[in-house]
Amino acid sequence: MKINFKNILIALIEKEFKSYLRSINNFMNMIVFMIAIILLFPLTVGPSEEKLTLVSNAIVWIALIVSIIPTLDKIYISDFKNGWLEQYYYSPLLLEIIILIKCFVFWFFLIIPLTIFIPIFSILLNIPFLIIFWNIIIFAIGSLGFCLIGSICSSLTLGTKSNNLISPLLILPLAIPIFIFGNGVIEAVKSNYDPLPNLYLLITVCLILLIISPLISAYSIKIALTK
């Protein structure tokens, strides 16, 4: 029978897009959570501008990461519960490629729109424009890495009942290289050094994840489906 691979791609992207559009409250939760952290932090640090300048960049990053983590472990859970992961398994397209597309769609529709909020929050926290520019670039690249790590953790915890507890524990250690190299770029910009070496390392980490994440995720999804 003739199989049209273009149809598979269109169907997959359409399904993901419509699912995210109809569960827009997940996205709103992320934004509300981010706003809460960014508004509460200056109140707890106190009115000193010096202290705030020192930690302001960290606040934006922590707000972004903490608001993303709860959604990362839900990449596959609804598809697993309503049987769509099985349909992906039966699809003529390799499960690894389907997972890669799912991660890209998740990144594009849920995470990239968050970058719009970086300049707004950065202005609130008095972060210089040059740092805001680099923050947007690092976050756009680093968040793809987060999605790929999230994919591994989400697929590993599919069969478990208490995946809410395990996922953050799995995600955080794997995300440390992204934190280190991302922060390295910002520190280099602040001290007038060349930020590119750290940026290249960050891209390398994401590229490595781009290869290993679909393989591990597909393997653990197959285990979860057959148990």
Binding site: N4, N7, I8, K15, L93
Partner: peptide, 8 residues
């Protein structure tokens, strides 16, 4: 979408 995923 199911038909699409099958490549039909």
């Amino acid at each position: 979408i199911w038909c699409g995923l099958k490549g039909w």
